[in-house]
Nucleic acid binder design. Structure first.
Lengths: 149, 149
DNA sequence: TACGATTAAATCGTACACGATATATATGTG
DNA sequence: CACATATATATCGTGTACGATTTAATCGTA
């Protein structure tokens, strides 16, 4: 009757599970580099475009300042990034990569690629999932944006 | 060149994003009931089978005792569940629903159903995603289990 | 039956994640 | 120029999440 109520049939839970599994996989793979999974996402964003304000970074990663500020400070303390107040607009903080983040890039990327290969995710599967998750993201985004109003 | 390195093309990030969007949607929908999204998942598991040990619950939800114990205690404090040491095996704690959790079930389920409907997720889309996420879960599970050894 | 190994929870430390609030800088309009 | 408004961060409080360690109960086997 209310089969749709079981954990097993909840899309939100399927996503939640996959998320925590990726979290574990990446955390373990990144452990030896001394970065966490969310910190790796920050590096990805900065490798793509070095020197971004906290706001820009937060928008790309869907993270508020309450999450980002302390995280970036930890990454600064461990030598991955640096934070500088913009001189043009003193409200802004510009976050950029330290040499360490550029030097270690290849090794980190390689490590992740190696581990992911072990999961045997097919290219078609990957592509399909990405496509469907983008559609889902679009719909959830519209909903969440509406609700803020 | 390394387009596969962009955030936009990372499966892990797509899952991460969808997860946090669901989190926001459910959190807002559940706010008036005084429960969080993870707590709602606990209720789902207990509505499905009332009276489970912390270990069983943790296995279904992929949560360790470091997460579950304090969460269940909060849910006990707010009157949703109760915790009782098993008399047969004093190591076990049996977690079961308080009347409040049974009384509010319909209202909670209705509220969630209403909000989800507003997202316009098609049945086919839902089914497809569930199917693919189950495959992904299987693969990530195998990987993560291997790594523990 | 004694005792080492296993199992179930609890506890601890660290790191997200989010909403709400505070603070400081910049901007727009009279 | 003055001042209300808007913007960018920072801070705070609460609640997950996870690995590691601790504690207590049970089990297996000599």
């Amino acid at each position: 009757m209310d089969d749709f109520l079981t954990l097993e049939n909840q899309l939100c839970f399927a996503v939640y599970e996959a998320g925590s599994q990726f979290n574990k996989l990446y955390s373990k793979a990144l452990e030896s580099f001394g970065i966490t999974y969310p910190q790796y996402l920050v590096l990805l964003a900065l490798w793509e475009e070095n020197g971004q304000s906290a706001k820009e970074l937060g928008e790309k990663l869907n993270l508020g300042t309450g999450t980002l500020t302390p995280m970036i400070k930890r990454m600064e303390a461990s030598g991955w990034v640096k934070r500088e107040r913009s001189t043009a607009d003193e409200r802004k903080v510009c976050i950029s990569l330290q040499p360490k983040a550029l030097e270690e890039k290849e090794a980190i990327v390689q490590k992740i690629a190696t581990e992911l290969k072990l999961c045997n995710i097919e290219y078609e599967e990957y592509k399909q999932l990405m496509k469907q998750l983008r559609v889902l993201r679009g719909k959830l985004n519209i909903y969440n944006k509406e609700k803020v109003k």
